[in-house]
Structures are given as structure tokens and as C-alpha cells.
């Protein structure tokens, strides 16, 4: 029965798999954009002269980075409804969890990026009359971001792979869709292989982009 592969069922299940992939991509993009935004704020907090704020941000980052993602996903899925009094749905829960979790990692990248901006640039911004916030927005963050694009993308590749962990709460991502389709068509192995191929193609293309960016950057220096 399972002796040889039969990929002919793939064509029929493509639309269904596509809905799964859509959620995987949505989760990746939302967590990336939200994570970078929140992570940048956390980085600013960590670098701020206000000790309390710096400490709080540092705690947040270190705690998030020391708990396995699967546990955070499960924990949020179970606890948020208890706090808000209403169920949230696996998909929304995943979006919130990933954004909050990834923010800790993007924070450390942005912190390194901010520190990579030459001190003379910071001085030049202040000398022109910029306030702290203007100097951050106009001079420091744009350069920090540029310097960190390859690293931010690398983190996003990891994030993309990690989205498959939402199986723990039953959110319908690409992996889940492949599993369901595999059951429906009685071809579980083919479906999971196909899902793996998609994960691979996306990650490999992104890695390629990162490599190109790094090369371009290396020449510039």
C-alpha cells in the first residue's frame, strides 16, 4: 500500500495546502514586523539611562530567550483566555505569542545594530540640534537597521521554521494542512514530504538573499 509514492493527489489538495501556507506566511510576516518594532523599543529601553526601564527590558528579553518556544505557545494559549475571559482562537494566539517571543530576539539584534553606529554619527546628529528621539529616528536607527538587515533576515528564517510549532495548539498552518490532507487522501508521507520541500525552498531562497546582501555589504566596507 505504502510501498511506492503517489504524488498525484497533490494537485487536488493544493488549494487546501495553500490556505495553510498562507497562515504560515502571515504568521512569519506579522511576527517579523511586530517583533522588529517591539524589539526596537525593547532595545531602546535596554540602552536607556533609566536603570529601571533597562532592567525591565533586560528581564523580559532574558526570560523569553530561556524558555522553549513550544512552552510559550502553549502557555499563552491557555493563559490569555483565563485573563481576558474569552477564547482567542489558536491562530490569533499564535500571532500574539510569536510577536512577543520574537521581539526578544530582534531586540538583541537591534541593540547590536544601534551600538554599531559610529559615535561620531551620534555626535553629528546632536551637534545639528536633534533631540534624542530625532537623532534615533533620523540618524541612528536607519543606519542600525541597514547594518543589521542580513542578521534580521537570518532570524526571520529561523522564525519561519519555528512557525511549524503551532501544531501544539492546533493552528492551521502549512504543516497542519499537510497532515490533514495526508489523512484525507490517505497519503500522509507524500504530504509531509511536500510540506518539507516548501519549507526548504522558502528558507533556501531567503538564505541566498542573505548571502548576497552580506557580500554586497562586505564590498562596501
Amino acid at each position: 500500500m505504502h510501498g511506492d509514492f503517489d504524488f498525484s493527489v497533490l494537485a487536488d489538495s493544493l488549494p487546501f495546502l495553500w490556505t495553510g501556507l498562507q497562515f504560515t506566511l502571515k504568521l512569519t510576516i506579522v511576527a517579523m514586523l511586530g517583533g522588529i518594532a517591539l524589539g526596537t523599543l525593547l532595545a531602546l529601553a535596554r540602552l536607556s539611562p533609566f536603570a529601571m526601564l533597562a532592567k525591565a527590558a533586560s528581564w523580559y528579553v532574558n526570560i523569553m530567550r530561556s524558555i522553549p518556544l513550544v512552552m510559550v505557545i502553549l502557555w499563552f494559549f491557555l493563559v490569555i483566555p483565563l485573563l481576558t475571559g474569552q477564547p482567542m482562537g489558536a491562530e490569533n494566539s499564535a500571532l500574539v505569542t510569536f510577536t512577543l517571543f520574537e521581539a526578544a530576539f530582534y531586540c538583541e539584534i537591534m541593540r547590536a545594530g544601534i551600538q554599531s553606529v559610529a559615535r561620531g554619527q551620534v555626535a553629528a546628529g546632536y551637534a545639528l540640534g536633534f533631540t534624542y528621539s530625532q537623532n534615533m529616528r533620523l540618524v541612528i536607527l536607519p543606519q542600525a537597521f541597514r547594518n543589521m538587515v542580513p542578521v534580521l533576515l537570518t532570524q526571520t528564517i529561523v522564525l519561519f521554521q519555528d512557525t511549524s510549532l503551532v501544531y501544539a495548539i492546533g493552528a492551521k498552518d502549512l504543516l497542519k494542512a499537510a497532515e490533514v490532507a495526508g489523512k484525507n487522501y490517505n497519503r500522509p508521507v507524500e504530504m509531509v514530504i511536500f510540506a518539507a520541500v516548501i519549507y526548504f525552498v522558502v528558507c533556501y531562497s531567503l538564505s541566498f538573499v542573505v548571502k548576497r546582501l552580506q557580500q554586497r555589504y562586505a564590498i562596501k566596507r
Binding site: 561620531g120 553629528a124 546632536y126 551637534a127 540640534g129 536633534f130 533620523l138 541597514r146
Partner: peptide, 21 residues
């Protein structure tokens, strides 16, 4: 208000410090 004061005190640095972006 230092930003206000600095706005009218020009400064030129050893390494130019133009904004590269």
C-alpha cells in the same frame, strides 16, 4: 535646552560625519 543651543553652533568633525544614508 541643549538641542536649541546646538542648532546655532556649527560643528565640523575630523571624520566629516556626513549621514551616509
Amino acid at each position: 535646552a541643549l538641542p536649541k543651543l546646538r542648532a546655532h553652533v556649527g560643528m565640523v568633525f575630523q571624520h566629516f560625519e556626513l549621514f551616509p544614508h
